[in-house]
Design a protein around this nucleic acid. Structure first.
Length: 228
DNA sequence: GCGACAG
DNA sequence: ATCTTGTCGC
């Protein structure tokens, strides 16, 4: 009855075709706000999706307490694929499942780390931005590969960064999360700016390439297991 | 027309 | 994302 996470505003439904989806992204993008994360979040969520036989989306969310980085709760939702994978339209494929999983949380996160891009997107509305906007919760996009933009190669050391630019605009940061390991693409989703996005990805790293909340959600989306 | 293209 | 065996390295 009392869910930890519910939409701040019901912005739209999910019955759209690709053309309408792109149109909607252009309409929603101006509402994205880039600003420093106001408070230190004590509850951080990591979200990720897995695919089951090309027909089901397995959306997983892991809630962690900061700064301990101890998992508080992990939830998984299995929903049918209703939208194809189209570069630039990922949120229309994965968000319905993610929202179903988020509703199962007993507490709401103060920050969400999302697998995929934030504003580093053709219309500045990657899945992290769309999700953050829908929930009214600060969100950061952490992609394992590039969608758009150009950038110099960041230094090889852990913590090295390079700006990600598209159409003469800063859209993200290429961040080396481990020495000599392929960098990740960090971009603000909503209610965070470039600096806090990189700062909070760094603060949730342990010994792996991906920040712990996303790494655990990724793990749950593959094994399909929830737990408290 | 051709290449690029989160998960 | 998923499929899918072995292999290299700490």
């Amino acid at each position: 009855m009392t869910s930890g996470v519910s939409p701040a505003t019901s912005l739209h439904d999910w019955n759209l075709d690709p053309a309408a989806a792109r149109q909607l992204q252009a309409t929603l993008a101006p509402a994205v706000r880039l600003q420093p994360l106001p408070v230190r979040p004590s509850l951080i969520a990591g979200v990720d999706c897995g695919l089951e036989r090309q027909r089901w989306i397995r959306a997983a969310v892991t809630l962690m307490r900061f700064p301990e980085l101890m998992p508080v709760q992990t939830v998984v939702a299995r929903t049918p694929c209703r939208f194809p994978y189209v570069p630039g339209l990922l949120s229309f494929r994965e968000m319905p499942g993610l929202l179903a999983a988020l509703e199962q949380l007993e507490e709401a996160p103060a920050l969400i780390l999302c697998d995929g891009q934030g504003i580093a997107h053709p219309r500045r509305l990657g899945i992290a931005s769309h999700l953050g906007l829908w929930l009214g919760i600060p969100a950061i996009g952490v992609g394992k590969s590039r969608l758009i933009g150009s950038h110099p190669e960041p230094g090889r050391e852990r913590g090295a960064t390079a700006p990600l630019v598209d159409a003469d605009m800063r859209v993200g940061t290429v961040l080396r999360t481990r020495t000599d390991v392929r960098p990740v693409f960090v971009s603000p989703g909503h209610l965070v700016d470039h600096d806090s996005a990189v700062e909070w990805v760094m603060r949730t790293l342990t010994r792996y390439r991906l920040p712990e909340p996303i790494r655990l959600a990724d793990r749950a989306s593959r094994s399909g297991g929830a737990k408290s």
